[in-house]
């Protein structure tokens, strides 16, 4: 599709100081390659200094990530971003966009994200928050400290997961989900407290997981979809031309993030398996890992588990209305219908 265009300029007017907290870590390419160039640099430049942006990450503001809706809602920042599964404790519908096994490839994930936006906003506006865009992180994959060739090899293994749908998934394939706080995962993998861990291909490479694991699967379990949110009261108060300027900017940011999600997914793998030439975005692993390519049975297992366990369990958590929204909006894209 054609890129939405960020306006080249903004007419002079009352100055605006905007505060935004976006990605979890300041080193993530989603931050350095998209947020900084657009939010911190392009917005003040193209608005001729009318809009200035104070931009930071969750880590810099000592946030855990699950409080972003409340952060935006209470007006601490004007714009906030966070991964949807982490926010699902407050807004369970958000989890449904990114269930484990829902989207085997990124194109489908994008279609679902675009389709669900109106319904998600209807839910969020009760809390004074509105989603501007939903974007992906690199595919969530399995890293293990021992060799494996297919998902069925994970049977009996301890796998560090996060979020309910991955828990359901890991349990169903016969592995044992382990809950360990993120800062402790590296050493937990190092010492074998857990055998495997699930994270984004890029996040794993950045968090130096290749130092403590040997095999990485390239089968996408989910996409760690995230969203940019604004405080509705602030948004409605904005001068319409400023609002249009920011809205168009986020359309372009959205496209860039999806493009990045696509390249970063592969880049995380190539960096982890030590292909120096193709590794552009993430740190190159000193000790190359082995890539475990998905076998056909794996994809079938993922789809079956999604239909039989992950989806019904999510509707149980979220309520019958979520099942209806799913069938209306997502099922036509995913091809898997929810049957109560």
């Amino acid at each position: 599709s054609a890129y939405a265009q960020m306006p080249e300029s903004l007419p002079a007017g009352a100055p605006l100081r905007l505060s935004a907290v976006t990605q979890p870590l300041p080193t993530q390419p989603q931050f350095t390659r998209v947020d900084i160039p657009y939010l911190r640099e392009a917005i003040p430049k193209r608005s001729n200094g009318r809009i200035s942006v104070q931009l930071s990450t969750h880590a810099e503001r000592n946030l855990a990530g699950n409080e972003i809706v409340r952060l935006v809602r209470s007006g601490q920042v004007d714009i906030g971003a966070g991964t949807l599964s982490t926010l699902s404790g407050d807004v369970p519908l958000l989890d449904g966009i990114d269930l484990a096994g829902l989207s085997p490839e990124i194109g489908q994930a994008k279609k679902i994200a675009e389709a669900i936006l109106p319904a998600a906003n209807k839910e969020l506006e009760r809390f004074g928050v509105r989603l501007l865009a939903i974007y992906p992180f690199p595919a969530q994959v399995v890293f293990c400290r021992q060799p494996f060739t297919s998902l069925s090899d994970l049977k009996g293994k301890k796998v560090r997961t996060f979020g309910n749908s991955l828990n359901d998934f890991i349990t169903t394939i016969g592995a044992q989900p382990v809950s360990i706080g993120f800062p402790e995962v590296y050493s937990a993998l190092e010492r074998g407290v857990t055998d495997c861990g699930i994270t984004g291909t890029g996040s794993g490479a950045s968090a130096r997981w290749p130092e403590v694991t040997t095999h990485v699967s390239s089968l996408a379990l989910s996409w760690a979809l995230a969203g940019y949110m604004v405080n509705v009261a602030w948004w409605n108060r904005l001068d319409p031309e400023v609002r249009n300027f920011i809205e168009a900017t986020f359309k372009e940011i959205n496209d860039k993030q999806w493009e990045l999600g696509h390249t970063a997914t592969r880049d995380g793998i190539t960096c982890s398996i030590g292909l120096a030439d193709e590794c552009k975005l993430h740190p190159l692993a000193a000790r190359p890992m082995t890539e475990v390519k998905p076998v056909e049975a794996d994809q079938a297992l993922v789809t079956k588990t999604f239909r039989d366990v992950v989806l019904p369990n999510w509707v149980k958590r979220c309520g019958a209305r979520c099942g209806e929204i799913y069938n209306q909006v997502i099922a036509p894209i995913s091809g898997v219908e929810y049957r109560p």
């Binding site: 505060s19 946030l63 409080e67 409340r70 952060l71 209470s74 007006g75 601490q76 920042v77």
Partner: peptide
């Protein structure tokens, strides 16, 4: 100029 007190509970609970 932010209503920082509205986030105090979260800051204590975290």
């Amino acid at each position: 100029d932010r209503p920082f007190w509205l986030f105090a509970g979260q800051t204590f609970w975290g």
